[in-house]
Simulated assay, not measured.
Amino acid sequence: MTDRVVRPAARQRRRPTKQGVVLSEELIVETALRLIEEHGADALSVRRLGRALGADPSSLYRYFRHTDDLMLAIADELIGRTLRTWRPTGDWRADLRDLGMRMHAGALAHPRAAVLSSYRVTGRGYEIQAVETILGVLRGAGFPDAEAVRIYHAFVDQALSFGALDAAGAALPRAAREAETAVWRAKYGRLPADTHPHIAATARHLVADMRHSSYPVALDLLLSAAEVRLTEIRGRPEA
């Protein structure tokens, strides 16, 4: 796609595609997301999208200026899928943990798209809603504004980073994933104590633990540190 722009009012396609479907931004994003999971980044081409939609490729310019614009919409949709399943309870730590775990699960549900979009800033509706929501949770808990922003930053970057890391692993062929898991038992589990005493002492734990994501542990450590910080803030004498 290029930077060709169509006025928003003119974007809605009024005739069905060859497959009898009326195009919409939502349909294009959903189709692109499916194609990415099937074919990777190469799926984001006007020709392939048009073929999948049964539409003239040029009609996609009514909705997106170029493929990067579409990629931002896909990233925003992944955020939206997390927000639509999350309900706050009023317990700031439990709410952030639940949101973080849902973000991570969302990345694993769409691993190839997550790897492509985790580092993007969309400036779109769902992302704005997520920023507002998380800051609201932190400010409502009593964190001062500057502290709320720092914790928000760490929380989101941690969730996105682990999501991309674990999604990249999940996107590997099954044989490759199984081979990497086997290394912990076949290689690390057999290192002798006289040359690698710490690995030998913890080998059974490494074999058991390293096959799983460490995100839940990392998330709990972050939230524990934030809770300690909040206790310190509440304990400070007022000026």
Rank of each mutant, 00 (worst) to 15 (best):
E127V: 02
R84Q: 14
G123L: 08
M71E: 00
P88C: 06
Y63F: 14
D68F: 14
R62S: 12
G90R: 03
M101P: 04
R120V: 13
M101N: 07
L53H: 04
R47I: 06
D69F: 07
L72D: 03
W92A: 03
A113V: 04
R51S: 13
Y126P: 11
L116S: 00
F64Y: 15
A105I: 02
L96D: 01
G100S: 08
R62M: 10
L60Q: 01
T82Y: 08
T89S: 12
M101F: 05
G80Q: 08
Y119M: 09
I74T: 09
G50M: 12
R48G: 01
T122P: 11
G100E: 04
S59H: 11
E127P: 00
H110Q: 10
A55N: 00
A43Q: 05
A52R: 11
A109F: 12
A113I: 05
G90K: 01
G54I: 07
L53S: 11
W92D: 01
R87L: 12
L44M: 05
G125T: 13
D76R: 01
G106N: 12
A52L: 11
D69A: 14
L70D: 01
G106E: 01
L70I: 00
Y61F: 15
Y126G: 03
A75R: 06
P111T: 04
A107V: 05
R48E: 03
D98F: 07
T85E: 15
T82A: 14
A114F: 10
G90F: 10
S118P: 04
V46E: 13
L116D: 00
D91I: 05
R87I: 09
P57L: 05
A107H: 15
R97A: 07
V121H: 15
T89P: 00
T89Q: 11
E77Y: 12
D95E: 01
A94M: 09
G106C: 09
A107R: 14
A43R: 02
A55F: 09
A113W: 07
E127D: 05
R65C: 10
R120H: 12
M103F: 10
F64D: 00
M103A: 11
L60R: 09
L60S: 04
H110Y: 15
A113C: 05
A105E: 14
L53D: 04
L83N: 06
L70Q: 01
L60T: 01
V115N: 08
D68C: 04
G50I: 11
L44I: 05
I79N: 06
Y63D: 02
A94K: 06
G50D: 05
L44F: 10
G50V: 13
G106D: 09
P88R: 03
G80W: 08
L78Q: 10
